[in-house]
């Protein structure tokens, strides 16, 4: 499975990328594979304050619904509206067009608590045993 080195990850299978004063977040390839065909994504309102580790979006497959947790705390400044019409992007391009939202972080230290690709992969391997 592909876990780009440039990204950070949460144990709850979200990825995060630092951009221009914002953190972009989405679901890892592992999560999208576990979900199988994503049929719907529910995104938060712009301006909503989210907390690290708290639910900020919902993703649904035919047989399941899961919360997506905010990788960092802050204000939602942008959401990927195209997912509402085309949720399959989460499956086909989870690190690109399948991004979920952009957060303007409010806590500086939180980024460092996220896992790098290698650590995330080893967490996955551990939980597989």
């Amino acid at each position: 499975m592909n876990f780009p080195k440039t990204l950070r990850y949460a144990k709850t299978h979200e990825w995060a990328r630092r951009g221009d004063g914002v953190v972009v977040a989405g679901l890892s390839e592992y999560a999208q594979k576990e979900l199988s065909d994503v049929v719907y994504v529910e995104l938060p309102a712009i301006g909503k304050e989210v907390k690290q580790g708290q639910p900020c979006a919902v993703v649904e497959s035919v047989k399941a619904a899961f919360d997506v947790y905010a990788p960092v705390s802050g204000k939602v400044v942008k959401v990927n509206k195209t997912l509402e019409a085309n949720p399959s992007l989460v499956n086909t391009d989870s690190y690109g067009e399948g991004w979920f939202l952009e957060i303007e972080p409010s806590q500086t230290g939180e980024w460092d608590s996220l896992l790098d690709a290698g650590t995330y992969e080893s967490v996955l391997q551990e939980s597989a045993h």
Binding site: V39, Y40, E60, V62, P87
Partner: peptide, 10 residues
């Protein structure tokens, strides 16, 4: 047989 549930939900 095997209705397409993904299509139905999307």
């Amino acid at each position: 047989s095997h209705p397409d549930e993904v299509k139905a939900a999307r």
